[in-house]
């Protein structure tokens, strides 16, 4: 499963730590939600980035007290038709101000890239190599959007007003 991060295919820096394995003293660690919550205190001061894999049926607000110690949150798409993690991503980015890496994992296909990017994801465990290679093209498929989301794009309702503004006042 290729990892696409900030538009590039990269190798994953994280080591996945099983729930019953000992915590390494340093390095980039990826933990389950249960393991992370149980070890959150002891992980403070850990030398290396920490990531957590958060299930899509668990309230994302539980992570809020710990966001400052997380470099990465991985949200899950057991199938791409299960869209719960889209809402979790919006909440993390817009309501809880998470600025770290937000990774989509599971059945992540080319046809979801635009939606995922708009919801604030910036890295992707892509299921198929061909989709990972097509990332740039697929991600830029749309140049206009009707609604504001967690990205920088402006929704159409606002965009029209921007377009109209200068027209009324002469040259922009």
């Amino acid at each position: 499963m290729p990892l696409v991060s900030n538009g590039q295919i990269v190798s994953d820096r994280y080591r996945s730590i099983a729930d019953d394995a000992e915590l390494p003293a340093d390095g980039a660690l990826l933990l389950s939600a249960a393991r992370f919550l149980a070890s959150a205190d002891s992980l403070r001061g850990h030398d290396g980035p920490i990531g957590v894999i958060w299930p899509n049926d668990r309230n994302i607000a539980e992570l809020v007290p710990h966001l400052d110690q997380l470099a990465t949150v991985v949200l899950l798409f057991p199938t791409f038709r299960d869209g719960r993690a889209h809402s979790q991503a919006r909440l993390l980015r817009e309501r809880y101000g998470f600025r770290g890496e937000l990774r989509a994992s599971g059945q992540v296909l080319r046809d979801q890239f635009v939606f995922l990017l708009r919801n604030g994801f910036d890295s992707f465990d892509v299921k198929k190599d061909s989709d990972a290679e097509a990332f740039a093209a697929a991600a830029s498929r749309y140049s206009v959007f009707y609604q504001p989301a967690a990205d920088q794009a402006v929704g159409a309702l606002q965009r029209r007003r921007q377009l109209r503004g200068p027209a009324q006042g002469g040259q922009p």
């Binding site: 939606f115 995922l116 919801n119 609604q147």
Partner: peptide, 16 residues
């Protein structure tokens, strides 16, 4: 129409 635009290709609610 306002709702149509807002809900079209809505990134969060396309997999309800």
């Amino acid at each position: 129409e306002i709702l149509r635009q807002h809900t079209t290709l809505h990134p969060e609610f396309s997999f309800l």
